[in-house]
Design a protein around this nucleic acid. Structure first.
Lengths: 248, 248
DNA sequence: CGAGCGTTTGAAATCGGTCAACAGCAGTGG
DNA sequence: CCACTGCTGTTGACCGATTTCAAACGCTCG
């Protein structure tokens, strides 16, 4: 994990393609320009690196520039719960604002980069730019909604429903970023998927096999192809629309 | 559900005992005075009334003045997931900011009252009062942390661990509000507890019986007495400190 | 090429779910 | 004041989805 000035790679918010997901949503060019001076550094992470860890003092929140991260809680007895998988344009570290300490670990699942948003400077700027303030509120709120949908999944759905909606959720979020909605690479292990969904890795594996037999998907290693979207929707979504992209 | 002007009952933020949990945390007297003019009305709810419903357009967020509310998602097939039980001083409706529509139903579990915070006016004021802005960020962030702890519970704990940490969580939150940490009234049914914890009402009932036999609690109807806190902590918390009051 | 994960698959065990009967208490109305 | 009714909660018996334990397979990377 090392820091690099954003100028080095000449990537500023004002030119970033992720603007439509991230902090700049709803801002005009002039306002985005002001953010450029706020976000002057990025962090480069290698697979497995931590962006932050539970207990670290919060000084910044982050926007994912590229890559995939997971956030997780670890219990003293070794059990762990993954609370989210995070894609470019999403913000991380928000759970640390409450008492100035990150409440979870954020770990890179592949080589990734995150933009550093110094939080006290951000709050100052947000007071000057109403649309920035509002967008931040929206981001926090959507994060809440996302977690609550996840709660619904863990609390009310059966294993196959959870997995189906997980696959569709990724499909939507990747599609929104211009990737194929029907074919993508899972950056996480079966165990991590299981942790996220509150089931065992063996169950995940068995379900993938079952879905394949039913002609719903094709999967080879971590490369997955969604064959029968309607079938998956029926499994996951007949009962709900949990997967539906709440990530803008 | 009817609206009443706050002046009527002469209860303003500046004199409200819940200030230590709610929006005014960290504000000085003068600043709190400004909030008074923002929060000019309250809503009175009878048991069973909805403060808002999924899909309603958001115009305000709420602070609970007294009473207890639940927030829930309902699936088309009838299953429902309760995502939270909310006590005085907590804010509600935050999940609606993301796209201007409440994402859940908020239902009163007993006669309750909530202060109306008109959201667009609030944002204006928050730009003028840095400590108000920051406190709102903290509230949102803590809400996130709370949900993630809940995720951990549903994803990684066994039924008895979930119930034990549920009881301790309430204990802490009530204690913070000046009530007894060891004896309180459950405002929700076994079914609602089960929904919140992702288990069946029969399981909740059986566990209460088991806890009673083990001398951990005494329970009569919905009145519960926590006898052996350490024992409960061992069940719930040996593996974690999930229950620990994140609500300020 | 071999070591070591990550993954798949099978068989047995179990926690919690489902179905069902009943008990307790609250409210209603005769 | 006491049935009657209905809702909430308790308890039992059985069932089944998921976990657990175990073994084998197959990438991937040094």
């Amino acid at each position: 994990m090392n820091r690099i000035p954003t100028s080095e790679s000449a990537n500023k918010c004002s030119t970033c393609v992720l603007g439509q997901f991230c902090l700049p949503v709803g801002l005009n060019q002039e306002e985005i320009g002001k953010i450029d001076s706020l976000v002057t550094e990025r962090v480069r992470l290698k697979k497995g690196d931590a962006l932050y860890r539970q207990g670290d003092t919060l000084t910044a929140v982050y926007g994912i520039k590229f890559g995939t991260l997971k956030t997780e809680y670890t219990l003293p007895d070794g059990r762990e719960q993954i609370t989210g998988f995070h894609l470019p344009g999403e913000m991380l570290g928000l759970d640390g604002i409450g008492n100035n300490q990150y409440q979870s670990n954020a770990i890179a699942l592949e080589d990734s980069e995150a933009c550093i948003v110094k939080f006290n400077e951000f709050e100052i700027l947000a007071r000057q730019i109403p649309s920035l303030q509002h967008q931040f509120h929206r981001i926090l709120s959507k994060e809440l909604t996302q977690d609550q949908r996840h709660l619904l999944s863990l609390g009310s759905l059966r294993a196959e429903e959870r997995l189906a909606s997980f696959l569709l959720n990724f499909s939507d979020r990747l599609a929104a970023r211009g990737y194929s909605p029907s074919e993508y690479h899972l950056r996480m292990s079966r165990e991590e998927i299981g942790s996220y969904l509150g089931i065992q890795l063996e169950t995940v594996s068995r379900l993938f096999s079952r879905f394949t037999e039913s002609g719903l998907i094709q999967i080879k290693q971590r490369h997955i192809k969604l064959i029968d979207m309607d079938g998956l929707l029926e499994l996951a979504g007949k009962s709900s629309a949990i997967h539906c992209a709440t990530h803008t």
